[in-house]
Amino acid sequence: MAETVRRTSGQTVVNDMEALRQRARELLDAGTVQVIIGYANGSNRRVRPFFARRPEDLERLILDDRCVLNLAVYLRKPEVKALGKAAVIATPPLLRSILQLAAENHYQESEAVFLALDSAGNVLELSSAEQIAGVLGSLPGSTGQDACVPSADRMPALSAGSTDRQARFAFWKQEFERCIRCYACRAACPMCYCEQCLVDSNQPQWIPVAAHSIGNLEWHISRAMHLAGRCVNCGACSEACPAGIPLNLVNQFLADRIQQEFGQKAGTSAKLDYALSVFSGSDRETFIK
């Protein structure tokens, strides 16, 4: 099986972890929140989501560059909601997704608290979309986006300047054929909040359910279209894919296209600025004849 370069260093452990833990402890003690959602070490040097409900659990919290999983997905889960109000250890991609969710009416003001570290190592406590939008740009690593990318030799078809359509087709055909339709990508994506995903709707059955070439292709095209202009590039989907399909390349490509064409970028404000729900009379139409 082709291999995906995953960042497994675990090196850059955040030095200010103690400050984060301290603030989390205060929030738990004061009863402001009932659970802290963060990351902890799992098996195989993997990180896993971690739910701390008692102050003593907080020792296990970690935050390093392996923490790609987007914790925002847990905020919508009923079993997490049942625990009470949550504070979330926040990375810039997570905060971007909260902004986009707020724009789409899927994050309510003060629904949760986000604990983020600024570049001086101070803990920021954010809960409204406005606060998030205000600090997001200045957070360390807020612009960097380097979720998993397949090694260059695996994707000659996609390397810059490739005009070989058939090679691209062959590449993606091969990638998508490995999809086992487990929908881990969907589960990992904070923007995939629909209770009834298109792929689960029959009457009509738009997308064939079985894991075969055509169904897989249609599923991945739909996934990309549904995330076009909404994907905040956290990379959680690729991280979650057991088959190692570089899903976020597709999303990233569309995000870039949309920014070039329409100047819009998801996850930058809580005001809805969805490229596909607005238009301009001067949109380019060279392809329409």
Partner: peptide, 14 residues
């Protein structure tokens, strides 16, 4: 659920 509508209101703006 009451509806499969997710309440994203993208329809509202189009």
């Amino acid at each position: 659920q009451y509806s499969s509508c997710t309440g994203c209101f993208l329809c509202e703006s189009v």
